[in-house]
């Protein structure tokens, strides 16, 4: 029988994206939605057996009569959210990114997006944010959703941005897909005097040697990588692009056109069909032939394992990203 075993540090359950000692905020989405709901009586919360795991339980506790537990039925969740919207309500519908993108796609597409209905699809576990393996790793959610007409897509970086994005996506009339970081979410952008604006990219720091373009949690990694590169006398600019669609092409093109610096797009997503290819298309259409690279997940079904291990393995940890950038530059 096993005695007192040393705690394994490589356990699959290490699933936090916060690094040691990083400032965090608890359940920013849930709290922001509760605050917003006070003045927006038409907002309702809906989920498919994942309230606790999408921070919607905060809303369910605060506004029990405006919360709809639909059971583990993602297709129903999206169809019913469409129905609610047709009756004048604004549902925030939550599940995991894989189940919205893969299982419920057709329902989001036809029942919600085609009629431009006011449904906000908010999904935890975007990209590679769980070690559970391909069933839970939404490595291609952006690729799937970018092709959907009418849909606005948001990939917030941290707790501050989630708090600000919630009222902003509610103010926008029409369907939105938002990638969600849940639980203890890192707080980073408060140090940059940042304000989220739907549809706008923001230059968080400038630098002449390389332009890092990123979204979601990769923006905090890009900022850390930029710090690390400074020690090698490489000055990196970081352009944060929280709205994936519609893409702020003007800001991206202007930043890439400046000083002929190479462009690296970093995303918590497959290199196929995400921000990287969206940026590449924008640059090509504008006739900008910058040196171009992607830091992103390979076009493959990824391994199961501990999240830090996997982020290193697939090149999206700060250290893996910094190493790659040093090699390229």
């Amino acid at each position: 029988m096993s005695g007192a075993k040393p705690r394994l540090t490589t356990a699959a359950m290490i699933a936090s994206i916060a690094s040691e000692g990083q400032k965090t905020k608890a359940a920013p989405f849930g709290h922001a939605l509760v605050a917003l709901a006070e003045t927006r009586p038409e907002i309702v919360g809906m989920t498919a057996d994942l309230a606790k795991y999408t921070d919607l339980h905060i809303f369910a506790q605060a506004c029990p009569d405006r919360f709809y537990q639909m059971g583990m039925a993602e297709q129903l969740l999206m169809a019913a959210a469409a129905g609610m919207a047709k009756e004048g309500f604004t549902p925030f519908a939550t599940t995991y990114a894989v189940f919205a993108a893969r299982r419920a796609y057709d329902f989001i597409c036809l029942a919600i997006a085609e009629e431009n209905l006011d449904v906000k699809v908010v999904c935890a576990l975007p990209g590679l944010t769980t070690g559970y393996g391909p069933s839970h790793q939404a490595t291609e959610d952006l690729a799937i959703f970018r092709g959907m007409p009418n849909l606005t897509i948001v990939d917030p970086c941290d707790a501050l941005e989630i708090e600000q994005a919630v009222p902003a996506i509610a103010a926008h009339r029409g369907p939105v897909y938002m990638r969600l970081l849940r639980g203890a979410v890192p707080l980073v952008l408060d140090e940059y005097g940042y304000r989220f604006e739907l549809g706008r990219a923001a230059m968080l720091r400038d630098g002449a040697d390389v332009l890092l373009i990123s979204s979601g949690l990769m923006t905090m990694r890009a900022l850390e990588a930029a710090d690390a590169l400074r020690k090698d006398r490489i000055e990196a600019a970081v352009l944060h692009v929280p709205t994936i669609k519609p893409l702020d092409e003007a800001t991206i093109v202007a930043a890439a056109a400046k000083s002929g610096r190479p462009v690296v797009v970093a995303e918590n997503h497959s290199v196929v069909g995400g921000l990287g290819e969206a940026v590449a298309g924008a640059l090509a259409r504008s006739g900008i032939a910058a040196r171009f690279r992607q830091v992103g997940l390979p076009d493959a079904f990824l391994d199961a394992g501990a999240l830090p291990t996997l982020h290193d393995r697939y090149g999206i940890s700060v250290s893996a990203m910094t190493t790659t950038l040093r090699e390229w530059l």
Partner: peptide, 26 residues
């Protein structure tokens, strides 16, 4: 559930002898 184990937390046919399907997407 350890890195590179044949016994991941969520059952997958490609990892484990005797596991017929990958069932995590319920």
């Amino acid at each position: 559930g350890v890195d590179d184990s044949r016994l991941p937390m969520s059952g997958m046919a490609s990892y484990t002898p005797g596991m017929e399907v990958s069932g995590g997407s319920l």
